[in-house]
Amino acid sequence: MKFTQKVLQLVLLEGKLEWKNKQSVTALFIYSFSSIFVTYLAFQQTIDLTTWNSLFWIILLFASTNAIAKSFLQDSKGLQLFYYSMFSPKQLILAKTLYNQILLIGLSLINFLIFQLVFPIAIYQIGQYLLSLILGAIGLSTVLTLVAGIVSKANNNAALLAILGFPLLFPLLSIIIQCSMNAINGFDWMVNQQLFIVLISLNLITILLSYLLFPYLWRD
């Protein structure tokens, strides 16, 4: 398939560009480490499970907003022109979304390990927790990638990403926090099943919507 080949090519290109300029991805990890450390100093290791979970997701929300803010804003005019001439908008949004999903899954897993290191807690259903982590990272990156595309066409104001993106993320975050809390408390798979189904369908809807809507943004 030519379409998938081009998308994968674009994902690789994004990765190579990121690798060439390691500064931005390092800055991203430093950002989330220092926010975790600030919470560690503020809470002094006395933290209950609900606070643990909420803090984790809030830190991840801000880190991912920062991570994805650069996905369109960082591209130079020349690079945008190159994308415009070489790839169709549908290939571009799929590739950007896929790349950001990989980036955010990595970021959330590393965040999780560090959070466990400074605030060690026992998670009874670790499999369910990791699943909700991955689905949450996919959802966050999909919504924020489209919003970053919108923002890149509107004055490139980074604060606009948070204003436009957060209200769209409320439904996702409320399900995710519920889901991961259930996993921490060790509820059975049956309890969380419905939430996971809603989560997966929400992710599918957002991917489909950004696939359909992005071409209208890109055509100038």
Binding site: I150, A154, L164, L168, I205, L209, S210, L213, Y216, L217
Partner: peptide, 12 residues
């Protein structure tokens, strides 16, 4: 751009 955002926001 506003139309794109409005459709996305409506679904969410």
């Amino acid at each position: 751009i506003a139309s794109v955002y409005a459709i996305f926001a409506f679904v969410m």
